[in-house]
Computed example of a mutant assay.
Amino acid sequence: MAYPCEITEELKEHVVTNAAPTVYYVPDFITEAEEQYILQEVYKAPKPKWTQLSGRRLQNWGGLPHPKGMLAEKLPDWLLKYSNRISALGAFAGKAANHVLVNEYKPGEGIMPHVDGPLYHPTVTTISLGSHTLLDFYKPISQSEGDEPQTEADRFLFSLLVQRRSLLVLQDDMYKHLLHGIQNAHQDTLTDRVVNLSSSTEDARLGDTLSRDTRVSLTIRHVPKVIRANLLPKRK
């Protein structure tokens, strides 16, 4: 199946102009019925599919990314449907998404600021289920000799409100340069540092305090370097 090599006009309509290049935020990307369907599929996965980490647990689908190449595994149909839908928006420059991380965050859980790294096409797309969160963005830690130590608060730039059933697409500096993370919090207050409020649904306004519930995110990406099982050297 061929996909657009450039972002489609449909997605361009959802660019967030108050952030660094480039963010697309699509509220209500999926319906409530689709949200419930995906959540059912997530929790039907066998227990060994889950990996418990500090602050969250996750499922890995499509293979394990590795510098030497990812041994590709076919995505299940319930993930392929939505990864194809995102690929059809031109998110991966004509390529198809082939890897999905399913992350579960309980209220009060988060993830330290980080970058996703070079194993992926420089685009990350996320569908959120079950709850909102605030995704915070930071300048990289300065490595210049003689610089004063920088705290996380010193490096903080802005936040994005990521609502349930939304699609978030990060490219360019937002992917390659800035760090992103989620605070360990039970509630989030919407301040003027949340730069996509005008793109959000009407139930999110400046000054509101939102309580988190359990959030499940589908982080959908394209891994360029893959190894097909039938291309592996045969054992003698």
Rank of each mutant, 00 (worst) to 15 (best):
M1Y: 08
C5S: 10
E6M: 09
T8R: 04
E9K: 10
E10S: 12
E10K: 13
L11W: 12
K12V: 06
K12P: 13
K12Y: 13
E13R: 14
H14A: 07
V15C: 11
V15S: 11
A19E: 14
A19I: 02
T22G: 10
Y24E: 05
V26C: 10
V26W: 00
F29N: 13
I30S: 13
I30N: 13
T31V: 06
E35Y: 09
Y37H: 15
I38N: 12
L39Y: 07
L39A: 11
V42G: 07
Y43C: 05
K44T: 15
K44V: 11
K44D: 14
A45N: 05
K49Y: 03
W50E: 07
W50K: 08
T51E: 12
L53P: 11
L53C: 14
G55R: 03
R56S: 04
R56I: 08
R57D: 07
L58N: 06
G63T: 13
G63R: 07
L64P: 07
P65A: 02
P65V: 05
P67Y: 03
L71H: 06
A72G: 04
W78N: 12
L80S: 14
L80R: 14
K81V: 10
Y82E: 03
Y82P: 01
Y82R: 03
N84C: 06
I86K: 05
L89Y: 12
A91F: 09
F92S: 12
A93H: 08
A97M: 01
N98K: 06
N98R: 10
N98G: 06
H99E: 01
E104N: 14
E104Q: 15
Y105I: 15
P107L: 02
E109F: 01
I111V: 03
H114Y: 00
P118H: 01
L119N: 14
L119K: 12
L119G: 15
Y120T: 05
V124S: 08
G130A: 00
T133C: 15
T133Y: 14
F137Q: 05
P140E: 00
Q143T: 15
E145C: 10
G146I: 06
P149M: 00
P149L: 00
F156L: 02
L157G: 05
F158Y: 01
L161S: 14
Q163W: 01
R164A: 07
R164D: 05
L168C: 13
V169T: 13
D173K: 05
M174Y: 00
K176W: 03
K176Y: 03
H180I: 00
I182E: 06
I182H: 09
Q183F: 02
Q183E: 13
N184H: 09
N184A: 12
A185K: 13
D188C: 02
D188F: 03
D192T: 06
V194M: 02
V195R: 12
N196Q: 15
L197P: 14
T201V: 10
E202R: 09
G207A: 05
G207I: 07
D208L: 01
D208T: 02
D208R: 02
R212V: 13
R215K: 07
R221E: 05
I227C: 08
A229Q: 10
L232E: 15
L232Y: 09
R235V: 15
